[in-house]
């Protein structure tokens, strides 16, 4: 029982950064913007979070730094795609390339230095509930944030006027503009929210999951988060389900590696990436499902005429 609990615990920890980054990107894409820079913003969040924690000695300041760094780093993408109407695919890619390069430079001084771990918070009373207590109420703070974030985004998108407006912008930016909604401003806010989420997800990697700085430590998680949004057909709760599925694949292959079985470790390490391809195929072959849920303006640049 103890063992099963531990495994589920690690699955949840592995899933948290995927969930946070994907929820952020979901909001961005719902507003009609495709930001392929998630990997870049995530790795910037990871290095800034680690560096801030190492310099100040407080992992909480690290978390804050990761969020702020991710949000700020999304701004150049926002400026190019929104104010200058550049190609979103190419601009997002360049954000990732820039982020990976910049994080290597920033992190150079911190390679090999001991990290600070953000301590778990056990919620008194609830943590003693048999079976699920430790899983749900004895976790790291960013886990709680990820759950609150998902619920908050569901509430915002589907229960508030601002959320309805955001979805309208994503589906038809021309109509939204004609109704007097400031499309560009709303998209800037969405892009920054996505950046903050990606930054926090990176911070989780370098402050909770493996508290250290390793170059390229995001290892494609930003791209998997992007795939999760498609997999979930732009629905927040499905993003959560997908993130936990991927957490299970990641942890499952790690445990299999530890046990041996003579399976090459490289094959097992490639499972999360292969799984991404497989789930993308499974979800996209249903054309109606993807067509119905894809924000209609996704990836199309918008220049307000006046």
């Amino acid at each position: 029982m103890e063992m099963a609990q531990n495994i589920i615990l690690t699955i949840m920890t592995a899933a948290t950064p995927l969930l946070i980054a994907a929820i952020g990107e979901l909001v961005v894409e719902r507003s009609g913007v495709l930001n392929l820079g998630v990997e870049g913003m995530m790795v910037i969040g990871a290095v800034c979070g680690f560096a801030a924690a190492a310099v100040t000695g407080s992992p909480w300041i690290g978390v804050l730094a990761a969020i702020v760094a991710g949000a700020l780093f999304s701004l150049p993408f926002g400026f190019l795609t929104l104010s200058l109407a550049t190609n979103q695919v190419a601009t997002g890619l360049s954000l990732t390339l820039l982020g990976v390069g910049l994080s290597g430079l920033i992190g150079e001084a911190f390679v090999g230095s001991a990290g600070l771990r953000l301590q778990s918070i056990a919620i008194p009373g609830l943590v003693d509930i048999p079976l699920v207590g430790r899983l749900l109420f004895g976790q790291d703070p960013i886990f709680y944030m990820s759950i609150a974030l998902t619920a908050g985004v569901v509430w915002f998108l589907f229960r508030t006027r601002a959320g309805l407006t955001l979805r309208a912008i994503g589906d038809s930016h021309g109509s939204a503009h004609a109704l007097g909604i400031s499309v560009i401003k709303a998209r800037y806010l969405a892009v920054m929210f996505g950046g903050a989420c990606a930054g926090l997800a990176g911070g989780h990697l370098s402050l909770v999951y493996t508290p250290q700085w390793v170059e390229n430590m995001t290892a494609g998680r930003g791209w998997i988060a992007l795939a999760l949004v498609v997999f979930a057909s732009w629905r927040p709760w499905r993003v959560m389900a997908g993130a936990y599925l991927f957490g299970a694949v990641t942890i499952g292959q790690l445990h299999t590696q530890a046990l041996g079985f003579g399976i090459p470790s490289q094959l097992l390490s490639s499972l999360p990436y292969l799984a991404t391809v497989v789930v993308l195929v499974l979800i996209s072959r249903n054309r109606r499902l993807t067509m119905m849920n894809t924000p209609a303006s996704l990836g199309r640049p918008f220049v307000p005429d006046r």
């Binding site: 190019l80 820039l98 390069g101």
Partner: peptide, 23 residues
């Protein structure tokens, strides 16, 4: 590592300047 930053920066600025062609 700065070389990587230069490369990323260059692409960013190329994309930004491309806007001048159409607008």
């Amino acid at each position: 590592k700065l070389a990587r930053v230069f490369q990323g920066l260059l692409l960013f600025l190329v994309l930004a300047c491309d806007t001048l062609i159409y607008y």
